[in-house]
Write a protein that binds this DNA or RNA. Structure first.
Lengths: 396, 396
DNA sequence: GCGAGTTCGTAAGCTTTACTAACAAACATG
DNA sequence: CATGTTTGTTAGTAAAGCTTACGAACTCGC
């Protein structure tokens, strides 16, 4: 019995079955046939998802929650238990009549995940996380200006260290990298790290024999916000640091763009009144207004706190100008900012919101929410872990 | 055996089975369980899709094209033939060895579709189309300034006329309407027609007992461009007329937005240097630069052809300014313009493209293509028909 | 002309999956 | 303590696509 379609052979922590999931649902791609076993995988994910989210409950509860019958749920649960993914946690103490149910939960400590963030300044950060996305241990390796192969060697070294220190079977490795990353985890271009066409995902998967996922850092961040934050509906996460980038989640799934460059808004020119010269050669790019080095430099020159506020407000204003057409086109529910709180939270984000409101139509887009993420500096790390979770367990 | 989930009972042209399709594929919705019959529906659509696109071929060809076995394909084809959707068209004249296959095709003249465009100026347009989207007959009804119930009565009258003149069983009714339309085909707001919360889809479905789909006009247009035009990848269709709106297709499916207002970019302010006062009260909205009445008025005041060109170029420039952040955020493959060719095709679209190139990053988004649609004034009509096709046959 | 090889479509039987029906176990309530 | 409720499991059924096998119809080489 040959596997139907398994493009890349990766060793999984699960003995029997990899959740196949459905074809991506794209109406027009030459989408694949669906076999009964695919349906099984879908329902399996459904059960897993319910347990993950709603927590401890009985088989009968799961049956009601998914719409499947108790028989089918029992069967799926047996499979999941044999893989060690689900455990029985005892009996329900019954305040109601009838036989008390056997309570189930995801075995939240049975597997760990390696998450890596390559987007911080001058340092690669990594961590081991549990299935709930909590950080168990973390590690760092200074970048020391390395680029190219030196830099990718440091990624390998960092993951080496994390994998060696793991205290539970690993579900996989997730990496959030700056730059343009394709669907196979090849980093097509990451100028700051001197990478072009680096197949980091394959390199890691081969070296560690673990399911590995390399994605863009802003996409990782928006995944984290979706899973661990309060995000609902279509959201855009704007990540402001040494550069400016964004991740978009539409209908629950990340938007890649036609050449994997979705969210690359840092070098879009903002406004029609010039602006400072950018490293890219143009004038008035979003990064010239918002990248933290530029912003810090401008703030240092400020004399009064009113000056500081003006500078921050101006930056926020520019962000609002750039985001207004995007909000209009996508009808976003939420815009989340990620970056240095002391810069972003306050006059800057307030000015962004004000500008957004004054440049879009209240009736259509007045409902858009703008806020800071509450996930702090771990957002990319945790988002990379979500990518692993989502692919290995079949949900996000 | 109860239907699993059929929110709205609609009479279909098909006796036995409505293609159920899969849940929308949104990772995080409380997505539904999948039964074997859902898989069947998916594979059924796959076969239909292949026949629709690739045209005449044998059962064995279909099996190779879909990855299903010849046995399964035979079974599905038998089902489709019993519904009158597929017919045998003769034997292949064999240049190759082996038994010649029996050629099959979609029965392209067996069903017709009603398509309606409510977005034209001062007139409602409708047509009967065949399964290939060709217009068989068309009809119009002058709007004569009616609004509210008078206007919706005219829609009913127009569809009455078309349905009465149909010469084949109807697959369904598709309507492209201006304004904000939700997923159930309720027109939440269409100011020009005086509609608020008008359940047009239900009204038509009930009156004609046919599957009916009411969608936004720009979304219809982008569907048409996708199906009948050359569009590939993620596209945005910008529809310029008395207003300015857009439809977005991401990963092959339309983008609705969190409150069904995606694509409503007409009242986004463009640039940071003021602009004319808009009917909405703001200054410098995209519509003040591009809506055809404003543009025509400005062009009438032009003295020389150089003046005319300047005006058109300025308008195109503004469109480029508005689109640059959207291109950056979505990494669009293509932007398609729909509207009066004499205004849009030439200096205007050239200026839009120039502006787009000068305000985005060549490496990331230099590949974006900007062009006029070739579907002309029938684009909404045909897109509305695509909505019917896509839902009733399970593809687009 | 004819056997060998190829391709097509179908028949029969198998495997997977989720379903229904039925039941024993375990509990609350009157 | 009898009754009703809820849980989880066993047994059997229906749907779907698969594999295997086969007759029909064709081309090609001798």
């Amino acid at each position: 019995m040959a596997e139907v379609e398994e493009p890349r052979e990766q060793v999984s922590a699960f003995p029997s079955r990899r959740s196949p999931g459905f074809p991506t649902g794209r109406a027009l791609r030459p989408s694949a046939k669906v076999l009964p076993e695919h349906a099984r995988g879908h329902n399996r994910s459904l059960v897993l998802q319910l347990l993950y989210r709603a927590g401890t409950q009985s088989r009968a509860d799961v049956a009601r929650g998914t719409g499947l019958t108790r028989v089918t749920v029992s069967d799926l649960i047996a499979e999941l238990m044999s893989e060690g993914l689900v455990i029985e946690t005892g009996e329900r103490e019954s305040p109601r009549p009838g036989k008390p149910g056997t309570l189930l939960d995801i075995n939240r400590s049975a597997f760990h995940i390696v998450g890596v963030d390559l987007s911080a300044f001058a340092v690669f950060r990594g961590a081991i996380l549990d299935l709930d996305g909590r950080i168990i241990t973390s590690a760092e390796i200074p970048l020391a200006n390395s680029v190219g192969a030196d830099a990718s060697d440091k990624v390998l070294a960092l993951v080496d260290e994390l994998v060696a220190g793991a205290t539970a079977p690993l579900l996989g490795i997730g990496v959030g990298s700056p730059g343009v990353v394709d669907r196979e985890g090849v980093i097509l271009s990451a100028p700051n790290l001197g990478w072009t066409g680096l197949p980091l995902q394959d390199m890691l998967a081969e070296r560690f024999s673990l399911p590995t996922f390399v994605i863009n850092d802003a996409n990782a961040a928006v995944l984290a916000e979706h899973s661990f934050g309060d995000a609902n509906g279509d959201i855009m996460l704007v990540k402001i640091g040494h550069g400016v980038g964004a991740g978009l989640l539409v209908g629950g799934s990340p938007l890649y763009g036609s050449r994997y460059a979705a969210g690359e808004i840092g070098h879009v020119v903002v406004g029609t009144d010039g602006g400072a010269e950018c490293s890219c050669g143009k004038y008035g790019c979003l990064e010239t207004w918002l990248a933290t080095p530029r912003l810090d430099a401008r703030l240092e020159r400020a004399r009064t706190s009113a000056d500081r506020e003006d500078i921050l407000r101006q930056a926020g204003h520019r962000l609002g100008i750039a985001l207004a057409p995007v909000v209009g086109a996508l009808d976003l529910a939420e815009i989340v900012l990620s970056g240095p709180v002391e810069l972003l939270d306050g006059p800057l984000s307030q000015a962004t919101l004000d500008t957004l409101r004054s440049r879009t139509m209240e009736e259509f887009h007045g409902h858009v929410v703008l806020r800071m993420t509450e996930l702090g500096d771990d957002i990319v790390l945790r988002g990379a872990a979500v990518a692993v979770l989502s692919s290995q367990l079949g949900f996000s």
